[in-house]
């Protein structure tokens, strides 16, 4: 099903993000938020502010302390969520983890990319490769397919993780610190990708994606016209523009890092 450009993709109500099991305690919230297709949201905040936990809660990987999350209308957290709705929601969103993207170390790069397509379409690798070849070429991963994920640098691992998410044609992309630690070439590529994914690229089905990216520093997003939110000290705030984010994250030099 194609979503209209202005369709609400992600909606949270009174969401309280809990830390992963074992640590305990509330971390961030309440989060009342709507993300529509074609929007790029940047969630800024210092280390330990709960940004990763927020993404994992949105993806249904960790339970929320309270509140609800709906993705494409499917309950992910709160009343009405069950295995079926969660699975359906996950098929329509992609989560790229921080660092090396948590690629499966037992599989090759190519197998990592093809796995979700093969699994959900009950198809063999040859069919999947034929189908996903344009995407793989667009992400410049063709020469890496036979490689072991452990042999890749972090920048390329993250791009493979992105390809793995895009294989199912999601409408919502959750990116955990995607621009952190990239060299200039990779940074330029990612900025270009975010712009085209947001606008709707033929390789991604032509529909505009909703994108949520977390970051420690907002400066790499300058000039991309995103919308900003800030997670800091357990509080969630929607910020009006890049200046207020730079000020809140201390990137304008007005805030002490300590």
């Amino acid at each position: 099903m194609r979503e209209t450009d202005s369709a609400v993709v992600l909606e949270t109500r009174g969401l309280e993000v809990a830390t992963p099991a074992g640590v305990g305690g509330l971390r961030l919230g309440p989060v009342d938020w709507r993300v529509s297709s074609g929007e790029l949201w940047v969630v800024a905040g210092p280390h330990g502010a709960g940004k990763t936990a927020l993404l994992e809660t949105l993806a249904g990987l960790i339970p929320a302390a309270s509140g609800s999350v709906r993705v494409f209308g499917h309950p992910v957290q709160g009343s009405g969520d069950d295995e079926t709705t969660l699975r359906e929601a996950r098929r329509r969103m992609g989560l790229v983890f921080d660092g090396n993207g948590r690629l499966l170390s037992a599989l090759s790069v190519g197998e990592n990319i093809l796995l979700p397509w093969c699994y959900h379409r009950n198809a063999g690798p040859a069919e999947a490769l034929t189908e996903l070849e344009p995407l793989i070429r667009h992400l410049q991963l063709g020469s890496l397919l036979a490689r072991n994920p452990a042999s890749l640098g972090r920048s390329w691992s993250r791009r493979v993780a992105l390809a793995r998410c895009l294989a199912l044609g999601p409408g919502l992309l959750l990116l955990d610190n995607p621009l952190a630690g990239l060299d200039a070439v990779h940074l330029r590529w990612w900025r270009g990708f975010l712009a085209e994914a947001r606008a709707g690229h033929p390789i991604l089905g032509g529909r505009p994606l909703a994108i949520v990216a977390t970051t420690d520093a907002a400066r790499p997003y300058l000039g991309m016209d995103p919308r900003f939110a800030l997670a800091d000290g357990g509080r969630w705030r929607i910020l009006p523009g890049i200046d207020s984010v730079l000020s809140a994250t201390g990137e304008d030099g007005t805030r002490n890092s300590g």
């Binding site: 990987l61 996950r90 992609g94 993207g101 979700p116 699994y119």
Partner: peptide, 25 residues
């Protein structure tokens, strides 16, 4: 060791995020 390492490195959560049931897979 394989499974424990995969779990410790968060690969199981990565499978879940892709809508793949780790028990089934």
């Amino acid at each position: 060791i394989d499974l424990g390492t995969a779990r410790a490195l968060g690969e199981v959560e990565a499978l879940e995020a892709l809508g793949i049931d780790p028990i089934h897979y």
